[in-house]
């Protein structure tokens, strides 16, 4: 079980203030959520925001995750991509009114997001994970950023960088952004959640590419979409390489970054669009 950093002290993680009074004649079947009367329990028929949540064996957390997700906007649909689940994740998600896409085999978070994005109807697609409960107040800035014209709104978080040698994945994120000509993004990456994209971005880069997030990021930058690091959520999840040596997940993420660089080169040439200075290469053979 990996460590998930708390976003706030436990006490402040109350989902939202409870309603002051309990109606005496609350209809049966709704009483169990009487304290959240304003949050609809169903997906909005014409959603503005689609929240996409891949989940594998997260029956314990999924309800809380969906509740927070649903609170980001009044017109929200929640899509849970349940994959490889052996518990009751699907049931728990359906009970919370989410649209559930169920797959028997594990897909992986990135493929899950890609699949979920294809089913999304909203103008804004917000991606988060099911293994940590991020309060809706921490999710809203991403939605607001897309509403105000950002195409790809990233989490402005990378992990610990106050040392001389950082984790390879952090280094890869920073370097890819530099090579994309976007050092201002620092280590912000579509590899990390939460992040949100506009429908325009989805149409421009395609839902398929979301399964390799750094490639999606490279495509977004190359197609001149507005990519910005909008808000920092301290998800203490950066380091797949916690187990020392040969972590397959680290390999996966690093390989993804190299694929993104190859895609950049396909788009902008062998130097990624950077100049060759005053070099007279023909002078030396």
């Amino acid at each position: 079980m990996r460590h998930v950093q708390r976003l706030r002290p436990r006490r402040s993680r109350v989902r939202r203030p409870s309603a002051p009074q309990v109606p005496e004649t609350a209809p049966i079947g709704l009483t169990y959520r009487f304290f959240e009367p304003l949050i609809p329990k169903q997906n909005h028929p014409e959603p503005l925001v689609s929240v996409i949540i891949p989940a594998m064996n997260e029956a314990g957390k999924i309800a809380a995750v969906i509740a927070e997700a649903r609170a980001v906007h009044p017109a929200t649909e929640v899509i849970v991509v349940a994959n490889g689940c052996r518990d009751h994740t699907e049931m728990a998600a359906e009970r919370m009114g989410a649209k559930v896409l169920a797959f028997a085999d594990p897909l992986g978070n990135d493929v899950g997001r890609s699949v979920g994005a294809q089913a999304a109807k909203g103008q804004i697609l917000l991606f988060t994970d099911s293994d940590m409960v991020i309060p809706s107040s921490e999710l809203k800035p991403f939605v607001h950023a897309v509403q105000s014209g950002v195409d790809v709104a990233l989490n402005d978080y990378t992990g610990p960088t106050d040392r001389s040698l950082v984790h390879r994945v952090i280094l890869a994120k920073y370097t890819l952004n530099s090579m994309l000509g976007r050092p201002d993004l620092r280590g912000a990456s579509m590899t990390a959640v939460p992040h949100a994209i506009s429908r325009r971005a989805l149409q421009t880069i395609g839902a398929e590419i979301l399964s390799v997030p750094p490639k999606a990021q490279a495509a977004a930058v190359c197609r001149e979409l507005r990519v910005e690091a909008v808000h920092r959520v301290e998800v203490g999840r950066l380091n797949p390489g916690r187990a020392a040596g040969g972590d397959p997940l680290e390999k996966l993420v690093l390989g993804d970054h190299l694929e993104a660089l190859a895609a950049l080169v396909a788009e902008r040439g062998v130097r990624g669009g950077f100049h060759d200075g005053e070099r007279r290469r023909s002078m030396v053979r």
């Binding site: 594990p106 992986g108 493929v111 397959p248 690093l254 694929e259």
Partner: peptide, 18 residues
């Protein structure tokens, strides 16, 4: 393209990704 960072099977990718 993936240099030495690609020798993970697709299935393992999926599980690890989660």
């Amino acid at each position: 393209t993936r240099l030495q960072w690609g020798q993970v099977s697709r299935d393992e990718f999926a599980i690890r990704r989660n």
